[in-house]
């Protein structure tokens, strides 16, 4: 199991347009990725390819989230996702 943390950079938090961009990126991966707020048990982690799960997570600007994935290429995939979360997507 690979694991990464990321700090949400988008000013509006992880919903609306930023959530859409992130979900589209997860959907393009051949892996199952989960997302949870930092400090929450891995069992409560949610499907990162679901925009509704991401929205219900309610991560705001500055919050830390944990991404997890298994399998080949998981490390590289998670690195690319962290990069997306740590960019202010709403500003672009």
């Amino acid at each position: 199991m690979s694991e990464r943390t990321a700090v949400i950079a988008s000013r509006v938090g992880l919903h609306a347009r930023p959530a859409g961009i992130f979900v589209a990126a997860v959907g393009a991966l051949p892996l199952e990725v989960t997302i949870a707020m930092a400090g929450e048990p891995a069992d409560d982690a949610m499907d990162a390819s679901s925009i509704l799960s991401i929205m219900s997570l309610g991560a705001s600007n500055g919050d830390t989230v944990v991404l997890r994935a298994d399998g080949e290429g998981a490390d590289e995939a998670l690195d690319s996702l962290v990069k997306i979360l740590e960019t202010d997507l709403d500003a672009e």
Binding site: A16, R17, V23, A24, M46, D47, S50, I51, L52, S53
Partner: peptide, 10 residues
């Protein structure tokens, strides 16, 4: 965003 919701896994 609405399009993504339509086929959302959850």
């Amino acid at each position: 965003a609405t399009a993504l919701m339509a086929n959302d896994p959850m």
